[in-house]
Amino acid sequence: MPLSVTESLALRSSEDVVRMRQWVRARAVGIGFSLVDQTKIVTAASELGRNILEHGGGEGHVYLDLPTHNSKIGIQLTFEDKGPGIADIEQALKDGFTTGGGLGLGLGGARRLVNQFEIASRPGEGTRITITRWKGP
C-alpha cells in the first residue's frame, strides 16, 4: 500500500487548525479508525496545533504519516515550530501548566489521547512534537 507518503500543512491561523482537523479526520477514517480513535487523534492534533499558534511563535508545520508496526496501522503527526521553545518539558506536560490564558491541558491532555508522544525542544530554536495513535483492535 502506498501509504507512507508524508503530507504536510502550514499552521498560521485558527482556520488552519480547523483545516488540519478535517484533514486528520479524513485520513483516520480512510485507514478505518473507530469513531473514538478518530476523535482522540483529531482532538490531540487540535490541541497541539493550537499550541503552536499560542506559544510556538504563531507559525509552524504539521506532517502526517501513516506508519505500520506489527501489522498495525496508525497515524503519526509531527508538529514543528521555530518559536521560543520549552525550557522545562516536565513542567509543560503537567496538567494546569499554562503560560497563555488557557486551562493548561494542551500538552498533557494531548499525550493522554495518543499511544506515543515524543517531544524535543531547544530554548530559542523551537519545538518538535511527534504523536502516534495506532488503530485499535
Binding site: 476523535t39 482532538t43 496538567d95 486551562l103 491541558l105 498533557g108 491532555g109 493522554r112 489521547l113
Partner: peptide, 13 residues
Amino acid sequence: QPAVAITLVELGL
C-alpha cells in the same frame, strides 16, 4: 456524542 465525551474525559476536561 459519546466519542466526544470519552475524549474530553481523557483530555482531562
